[in-house]
Design a protein around this nucleic acid. Structure first.
Lengths: 106, 106
DNA sequence: TTTGTATATAACAATACAGTTATATAACTT
DNA sequence: AAGTTATATAACTGTATTGTTATATACAAA
């Protein structure tokens, strides 16, 4: 599975959100996601790890998962190829902003 | 299906690449993707359209598909939430670049 | 050294998804 | 009008993915 599919799952994206607050053990995450079982959480974490989205620190029996940017950078690089296609939109935004500035409107 | 799943499919990403070169009819795209059938192409285009990744212009019996940035902007916005997590990496890149500049490389 | 805690993996079921062929729709051509 | 071209949709199939429960592993605690 690649990083695109890794973030395609909404549960995994929610897990990234939780990990963005702070690092968590698997048990912490199981508590944060009462809808799904512990094995399901572990497997999601495996996918996230395999795609450079989280790292693990071993701490006795606990595994502490942390957000890692690598996978997201890969996604960002992919998107950047297409950014030229929304320069028009940005231009429009710039025009809109400068026009309103002239008019004294926020 | 959301925009994350829309770009999770490698064929759809390849279609975006082809459309990034220039707008195409469905038949053009079918030619560009000899591995898959015309109905498969049409369904991929439907997914891309539903997620703001392409637009369609009707031209007689032909449909001309063009890349549209909306869906990609949505993805970019999502990623931007996490960009703070790779500021360290960017710092490293800056250091790397400035170091090589000093050394007269590249 | 037995019991408990934390996590991962195996095996399986249900669902989602991408592919196919066949067919429908709609516009152009003759 | 009849045939052709361009695209979409329907129905179906195979595979992938997510979830489950049961179990294995590995360390900690008593």
């Amino acid at each position: 599975m690649d990083v695109f599919s890794a973030v395609a799952d909404s549960t995994r994206r929610a897990m990234l959100d939780v990990l963005a607050e702070r690092s968590r053990t698997v048990t912490d995450l199981v508590t944060s996601f009462p809808n799904i079982s512990q094995p399901a959480v572990s497997r999601h974490l495996k996918v996230l790890k395999e795609n450079g989205l989280v790292t693990v620190q071993v701490h006795a029996q606990q595994r502490i998962y942390s957000l890692q940017p690598n996978g997201l950078v890969e996604l960002d690089n992919w998107i950047s190829k297409y950014k030229i296609f929304w320069s028009d939109h940005l231009d429009s935004l710039e025009k809109y902003l400068s026009k309103n500035k002239e008019n004294g409107e926020q």
